[in-house]
């Protein structure tokens, strides 16, 4: 089947099997390997991307379901000119990542959260990332990173 999809503001047209998962379209067909795959069952959230501005787990979305839609992945977080998103800066400053495997998914969910809720409480941050597993950080520094990004963005106006 033909898939027409916009990923990180770039248009792609691909002929794919109807059963192809979005995560495999991104990784294997488009070469966007920043989105990771970790579990198959929507539990770990390593594959989280935005589909029409809403985070989804791309291991349980068919590529054909994304046809006509826009997808944003971790590769689309950086602005033109290589300017990092504040969340990327904050994750680095607060040691919010270790092996880096869950990080792209965490960043996408966190960006969605802060776009909707510029001043989240720690409980709201924890709820937002509760569908995503990290095996390295015990979540503490991820929560700190997201809080730091929120504070930095508010300070910058």
């Amino acid at each position: 089947m033909r898939v027409t999809v916009t990923v990180n503001d770039q248009d792609y047209i691909r002929d794919v099997e109807p059963r192809l998962l979005l995560v495999h379209l991104l990784r294997d067909e488009l070469g966007l390997t920043g989105t990771h795959w970790g579990c198959d069952t929507s539990n770990c959230g390593a594959c989280t991307v935005w589909l029409d501005r809403v985070p989804v787990k791309s291991c349980t979305v068919l590529a054909v379901m994304a046809s006509g839609s826009s997808v944003r992945t971790v590769e689309g977080l950086e602005r033109r000119g290589g300017e990092l998103d504040q969340l990327q800066v904050s994750f680095a400053l607060c040691h919010g990542l270790q092996c880096g495997f869950c990080t792209p998914g965490m960043l996408m969910t966190a960006r969605w959260l802060l776009d909707r809720l510029p001043d989240p409480s720690d409980v709201e941050i924890r709820e937002a990332i509760s569908g995503q597993t990290c095996r390295c950080t015990g979540y503490e520094n991820i929560v700190r990173s997201i809080r730091h990004a929120a504070e930095s963005e508010r300070a910058a106006g």
Binding site: T33, G34, V74, E75, Q88, T103
Partner: peptide, 8 residues
């Protein structure tokens, strides 16, 4: 890692 450019 932050840019999704790790190589696994």
């Amino acid at each position: 890692f932050l840019r999704g450019r790790g190589r696994f």
